[in-house]
Simulated assay, not measured.
Amino acid sequence: MKKNIAEVIGTFTLVFMAFSTILFMKPEVGLIGISLSFGLAVVAMAYGVGPISGAHLNPAVSLGVFLAGRMSAGEMLGYWISQVIGGVLASLVLIAMTADPAGAATAIGPWGTTAALIFEVVATFIFVTVILGATQEGHATPVAGLAIGLTLTMIHLAGITVTGVSVNPARAIASNIFDAGAASQLWLYIIAPLIGGGLAGVLHKSGLTSA
Rank of each mutant, 00 (worst) to 15 (best):
L186G: 10
A104H: 00
A134H: 03
I81M: 14
Y79A: 12
A46E: 11
T153N: 09
A44F: 02
E28R: 09
I32Q: 11
S166R: 08
G207I: 00
V61Y: 07
H204Y: 08
T163Q: 12
A46W: 02
A170G: 08
V42I: 15
L203D: 07
A183I: 00
G196W: 00
N176P: 06
G196F: 00
V130C: 08
L186V: 00
T141K: 15
H156K: 13
A134C: 08
E137K: 15
Q136L: 03
L188P: 07
N176H: 05
G159H: 09
A192T: 06
G33V: 01
M1T: 12
Q83C: 10
V15L: 14
A144M: 01
G78E: 12
T21R: 06
G197S: 07
G64M: 02
G33F: 02
V84R: 12
L67I: 03
P51K: 07
A183K: 08
F66S: 11
N176S: 15
W187M: 10
L157G: 11
L194P: 09
L40H: 05
V29I: 13
K26N: 09
L94W: 00
A140W: 01
V88E: 10
L14V: 03
T161P: 13
P169V: 04
A174G: 09
L63I: 04
I5N: 09
A96F: 00
A104W: 01
I81H: 11
S210E: 03
Q136Y: 00
L36C: 11
V61R: 09
V121E: 07
I81E: 10
A116M: 03
L186K: 06
L14F: 04
T151H: 06
I126K: 14
W111G: 13
I195F: 08
T153S: 12
A211S: 10
L186I: 02
L36S: 05
H56D: 10
M76W: 04
L203G: 08
V29P: 06
G69P: 07
L194Q: 08
L36I: 04
P110A: 15
V167D: 11
V84M: 14
L67Y: 01
G112P: 01
V84N: 14
L188D: 07
E137D: 12
F19S: 14
I155C: 13
A200G: 10
G103S: 03
T21W: 03
K2I: 12
V162I: 15
K2A: 14
I9Y: 04
A180I: 05
V43D: 11
V202A: 13
V8R: 13
G103I: 00
G112Q: 02
M17T: 09
T209W: 01
E28A: 13
I85N: 13
L117S: 15
L188S: 08
L31F: 11
